[in-house]
Amino acid sequence: METKISFTLNGKKVSLSTDPLRRLLDVLREDFGCTGVKEGCSEGECGACSVMFNGRMVTPCLIPAGAADKQEIMTIEGVRETELGARIVQAFADGGAVQCGYCIPGMVIAAYNLLQDNPDPTDDEIRLGISGNICRCTGYDLIVESIKLAARRGK
C-alpha cells in the first residue's frame, strides 16, 4: 500500500510514495542513494546502518519508513558535510581508524552523536559512545584514539 512520506534528508526536504513498512534503511539506500548507510546484522545489534533521527543516533534497520514522515534524518552523507562530521572523518583518516571500512560510517555517526553533546569525552565515555557499533578489524583502540584526536582538534 503506497503512501506519500516526506521528511528532511541531510537538510533537504524529500518525499516519495512507497510502502511505509519498508525499512528506512532500504529507502535511504535504494531511493535516495545514501549507500554510506551500511547493512550489517539487520537487527539493531551492529550499528553499521546508524543514522541521526531528529538529532539522535538510531539504527534504521529497525525503523519503518513511515516513522520518518515529517521527521529529520541525517546520514553519513550529510554528517560529513558538517564541521564536526568533517573533523571526525579527517581524524579517522589521520589516526588510522579504518581497516576494511564497513563499520566506519556508523562509527563516525556514533562519534558525532557523542561529540555533539560531549565535546571532551573521557576514554570510558568514548567506549560507551561506540558500544553499539561493532568493528571486526581494528580492535577499537585506533578508533578511540581517533575520536580523541577529533575532540582535541575541536578545542
Binding site: D19, L21, R22, R23, D26, E39, S42, E43, G44, C61, L62, I63, P64, A67
Partner: peptide, 22 residues
C-alpha cells in the same frame, strides 16, 4: 501498534533488503 519497532521489526523481518511482513 508499532512504536520504536525494535521488537516488531526484528520478529517480522525477512532478510537483507526485504520489507518485514506483518
Amino acid at each position: 501498534v508499532l512504536a520504536g519497532g525494535s521488537d516488531l521489526m526484528v520478529s517480522n523481518k525477512r532478510t537483507i533488503g526485504l520489507t518485514p511482513v506483518f
